[in-house]
């Protein structure tokens, strides 16, 4: 996975001509992002279709979820995503200080997300609800925990980008590595944008 941040040397940037249409970052990273998204698409659809046979149970159990925590976590992820956009913009104008600061702020948003999620899980376990309680909770725990792991992975990527940005690896000359890591972090955000309404709100 560190390939996201260190792939500079491995692959040619996707599209160099500034006037032409250009995919930011490295092609293999985008292929990886697409594979992850397809996997989540299958999981989202599995949830929606499993619900068809258990509508009442799903609606009942959904009421026990902490919607406030889910919404605050959405705000944290979109804000974390926004900070990383600002970091890429700063790197392109060679403002290394602003770039590393914004990556750091994005990382903190991710940490806030994880903290809230841990409290949410603790509250569920405290109420005696676990993975094996029923189909709804099996989906709730597996979907959110799988996403949780992706937030951690995204934060590892951000940590590497932070170090490399401070070392001056990215600037107006080359920001492909930073763009690649940023795209992965935005994917983590994008997945939660679907997951939150689907599991916490739609009924």
């Amino acid at each position: 996975m560190t390939a996201i941040a260190t792939a500079q040397s491995a692959e040619a940037p996707a599209g160099e001509a500034p006037a032409a249409k250009r995919l930011p970052g490295y092609l293999p990273v985008w292929a990886f992002i697409l594979a992850e998204m397809l996997l989540f698409a299958v999981l989202f659809a599995s949830y929606a279709f499993a619900r068809v046979d258990n509508v009442e149970m799903f609606n009942l159990c959904q009421q026990t979820l902490d919607r406030n925590a889910g919404a605050i976590n959405t705000v944290l992820l979109v804000t974390g995503s926004w900070f990383v956009v600002l970091a890429v913009q700063a790197a392109r104008r060679d403002d290394r200080r602003a770039a590393s600061r914004d990556i750091g702020l994005g990382f903190l948003c991710g940490a806030g997300f994880l903290a809230i999620k841990v409290f949410e899980y603790a509250a569920k376990f405290g109420a005696g609800i676990t993975f094996s309680t029923n189909t709804f909770y099996r989906f709730y725990f597996s979907l959110t925990f799988f996403h949780f792991m992706h937030v951690i992975l995204g934060m590892v990527v951000l940590a590497i980008l932070w170090v490399k940005t401070r070392q001056g690896a990215y600037g107006s000359h080359d920001a492909h590595g930073l763009e690649s890591g940023a795209a992965y972090w935005h994917m983590v955000d994008l997945l939660w944008i679907v997951l939150f309404p689907l599991v916490y709100v739609m009924r």
Partner: peptide
């Protein structure tokens, strides 16, 4: 709402508006 938000992240944040 998911569509509006998702498209915003894809086009503006991921910068795919200017991608192939």
């Amino acid at each position: 709402i998911v569509f509006i938000k998702g498209r915003l992240v894809i086009l503006e944040f991921m910068e795919l508006r200017g991608a192939p």
